[in-house]
Simulated assay, not measured.
Amino acid sequence: MTTPLDILNAAPRDTAVAMMEPLVECSPWVVDRVVDARPFASAEALSAALAETIASADAERQRALFSVHPELAGREAAEGRMTEASTGEQHRLGLLALLPADARRLADLNRRYRARFGHPFIVALHRFDDLPSLFAAFEQRLAAAPAEEHAATLAEIASVIRARTARAFGPGSGVQAHPAAATLE
């Protein structure tokens, strides 16, 4: 049986790039640096290569990558400008249909975080089961020192990449895991 990872490994470069871009939020430079490292032995190897590329970038490039992420239930969500992956991740926790009090609280947290750290709060939403636990994590990270928060943000991005890669290319992912995969069958 041909797996999505087999298809990715055998795909022309442009198709492979298209298949990998949803794994990293609006940062094609990461995929461009990793795509030529194919073939990947596993989804884990692919996600590790993407995360290592980000981790090894200079701090300025990392902050630029942080800045392209959408705020939780922020302007990008309201305007329908989030990626499909971010939309699904935020929808799962109900962030796209918050009660007014929760929406105000999240807007305040987003504002305070951006003022303190200069970029949106980035968190691996797949690790949370409910809003109270997400809000608690948000408050805790707001109190972090900038260097500590920078490291935490990199770890959260790596976790998001691992989860997205596992869904798209891990065991049990269907050959239709990405629209580009359908054209290669």
Score class of each variant (00 low, 15 high):
24 V>Q: 03
87 T>G: 11
24 V>W: 13
150 H>F: 13
109 L>Y: 09
19 M>H: 12
113 Y>N: 07
112 R>I: 10
183 T>S: 14
185 E>N: 01
78 A>S: 07
73 A>H: 05
18 A>F: 02
142 L>G: 06
121 F>N: 00
181 A>K: 03
168 A>M: 15
42 S>T: 13
126 H>E: 10
80 G>E: 04
155 A>R: 08
74 G>S: 07
139 E>W: 10
173 S>A: 15
110 N>E: 00
27 S>T: 14
84 E>H: 03
120 P>W: 04
28 P>A: 09
46 L>R: 05
70 P>G: 07
2 T>M: 12
115 A>D: 15
92 R>F: 08
141 R>Q: 05
47 S>Y: 06
114 R>T: 13
131 L>Q: 04
64 A>V: 04
176 Q>S: 14
7 I>Y: 00
131 L>E: 01
149 E>Y: 11
37 A>F: 06
131 L>M: 05
15 T>Y: 03
143 A>T: 07
72 L>D: 02
99 L>Q: 11
62 Q>R: 10
67 S>I: 00
152 A>C: 14
19 M>F: 04
23 L>P: 01
99 L>Y: 01
125 L>F: 00
171 P>E: 13
169 F>E: 13
133 S>K: 08
88 G>T: 00
41 A>S: 10
71 E>R: 12
162 R>E: 14
55 A>Q: 05
75 R>L: 14
50 L>K: 14
109 L>T: 00
83 T>K: 05
105 R>K: 07
124 A>R: 10
123 V>S: 02
58 D>R: 03
102 D>R: 00
57 A>C: 12
129 D>F: 09
52 E>A: 09
12 P>W: 02
148 E>S: 14
83 T>W: 03
123 V>K: 08
171 P>Q: 10
136 A>E: 01
184 L>W: 00
46 L>Y: 02
168 A>Q: 12
143 A>F: 07
30 V>L: 13
54 I>M: 13
176 Q>L: 14
95 L>T: 02
182 A>I: 10
73 A>T: 08
53 T>F: 09
124 A>T: 04
23 L>K: 07
22 P>Y: 13
105 R>N: 04
170 G>E: 11
